[in-house]
């Protein structure tokens, strides 16, 4: 259990949030042109990093807005929080 600093509401308990998995997986621009391998890559393959990871979260029991965080998955420490559409802070 840890605290997440929602960019809209401030610091709240993690149980108020829903994890949305790896961030910055871009939706295919031309889905009809995608091969099966490329679909598999987009839909299923994940970096699943042990260490610093960029991920999406949703303040499900709060403002219900989506945003990104940078978190070390080996100790659950949050390094940075940034809004959707913003450039990820450099490591």
């Amino acid at each position: 259990m840890f605290l997440i600093n929602c960019p809209f509401c401030g610091e709240r308990e993690q149980s108020e949030f829903k994890a949305g998995g790896e961030a910055h997986i871009e939706r295919p621009k031309q889905p009809t042109e995608l091969s099966d391998d490329e679909w598999a890559e987009f839909l299923f393959m994940r970096k699943n990093i042990k260490g610093v990871q960029f991920e999406r979260w949703n303040h499900a029991h709060g403002c219900r807005k989506w945003f990104n965080i940078v978190r070390d998955t080996s100790n659950d420490q949050i390094k940075a929080v940034y809004k959707m559409g913003e450039k990820p802070p450099v490591k």
């Binding site: 259990m1 993690q14 149980s15 829903k18 994890a19 998995g21 790896e22 699943n48 990093i49 042990k50 990871q53 991920e55 979260w57 998955t73 080996s74 100790n75 659950d76």
Partner: peptide, 14 residues
């Protein structure tokens, strides 16, 4: 399980 990726071998209290 918790819904977030973690290698910390600790889960959430809730």
């Amino acid at each position: 399980t918790d819904d977030y990726i973690s290698y910390s071998q600790k889960g959430s209290h809730d």
